[in-house]
């Protein structure tokens, strides 16, 4: 019974990877184009915006908060980029986008950390305000990006496509920030127990604030990368992006209740979702079932996580007669 328990836990722990494997096998057997290096490069490039969003979302989730406004930030900063920064060199455009999105993140952060509004409501509010402003500046018309920006999509660094480079840079910075700096460790502490962190003298509010700033800035970054890929955005751009980002983070093992998870998981989750989507395209599946498959995968992942934490909780209970359990 105990070895069975252990195996169950191992299986549940490995479930997201098994799911990934299953997706590879299923689509690989349905199409010979699927399991190719070119297609995998393609998957990573397509996954780039969601991966960057999910990495930002991870910071917020680690503090036990949530950011529903990332899609709106993508849309608004995308409008700014396309409408007002068409003529400037792209690095300046990127800088402006990053600053603007970080400021939007700061608004969320201030509402949540300093004014004490529940993040779900605060970012739901800013989501609509942000989209409203974006619709007003764009007049709800399509916004086109200049060649200077769309050409970045074809650019490479040492032969590596630019989108992959962008993800890699964001990932490394985020990983170092979370694992190797005091701030990062304090993010985990605050997410685990806000009161205890405050009592210990950690600037909990400031830490939560900065996590929203990071989430905002990375939403801008994700928007920039996806702008280079799609060339034009419409009023529906970024809708439900928060869903993909949260899903990717949670698929990768980040808890909605704070303190558990990391950016590696976010990357994995984004790749998993994109791999499934890519597979569906390759086998020419009915486009109407795409959202169903994605939602199904996420449902399974969350269910597995729920069962796993339930089992771990039961197994980690302290026993009075430990010799009977071992």
């Amino acid at each position: 019974m105990n070895s069975r328990n252990r195996i169950t836990i191992l299986l549940l722990q490995a479930a997201p990877y098994l799911l990934f494997l299953a997706i590879l096998l299923v689509f690989g057997s349905l199409s010979d184009r699927f399991l190719s290096l070119a297609n995998f490069t393609n998957i990573v490039i397509q996954a780039a915006p969601v991966a960057i969003l999910a990495i930002g979302m991870t910071f917020v989730l680690l503090t036990a908060e949530i950011d529903l406004s990332v899609g709106a930030v993508m849309y608004l900063t995308g409008c700014i980029l396309g409408l007002y920064l068409g003529g400037v060199p792209w690095p300046i455009g990127l800088m402006v986008v990053l600053v603007a999105s970080a400021l939007l993140g700061a608004v969320n952060g201030a509402l949540v950390a300093y004014l004490g509004i529940t993040s779900f409501i605060a970012t739901l509010g800013t989501l609509f305000i942000g989209r409203g402003i974006a619709m007003s500046v764009s007049n709800t018309a399509s916004v086109y990006f200049p060649e200077a920006i769309t050409s970045l999509n074809r650019a490479t660094v040492f032969g590596i496509p630019s989108a992959i480079v962008a993800v890699a840079v964001v990932f490394v910075i985020a990983w170092v920030l979370l694992q190797q700096t005091p701030f990062g460790r304090q993010v985990y502490a605050v997410g685990q127990d806000r009161d205890a962190a405050t009592k210990a003298g950690l600037p909990a509010r400031r830490i939560v604030f900065f996590c929203f700033v990071i989430s905002g800035a990375l939403a801008g970054m994700a928007g920039f990368v996806s702008s280079t890929q799609i060339g034009a955005i419409t009023a529906s751009y970024g809708l439900q992006a928060e869903f993909s980002a949260i899903a990717a983070a949670v698929l990768g093992g980040t808890s909605l209740f704070g303190g558990r998870g990391g950016v590696k998981g976010a990357l994995f989750g984004a790749l998993l979702i994109q791999t499934a989507a890519n597979g569906l395209v390759i086998i020419n599946a009915n486009p109407y079932i795409y959202p169903l498959v994605t939602a199904g995968i996420i449902f399974i992942a969350v269910a597995v996580d729920g069962l796993r934490s339930h089992m771990l909780e039961r197994l980690e209970r302290r026993f009075i007669r430990p010799w009977e359990i071992a």
């Binding site: 701030f183 502490a189 685990q192 205890a196 210990a200």
Partner: peptide, 27 residues
């Protein structure tokens, strides 16, 4: 107790004042 179960012993010991490596903000 004012400890964080999701962090290691050493991280709990220094959570408020991590020593940084000369000049750079890394632990």
């Amino acid at each position: 107790l004012n400890l964080f179960p999701n962090l290691s012993i050493e991280e709990n010991l220094f959570i408020t004042d991590f020593p940084k490596r000369g000049g750079v903000p890394f632990i």
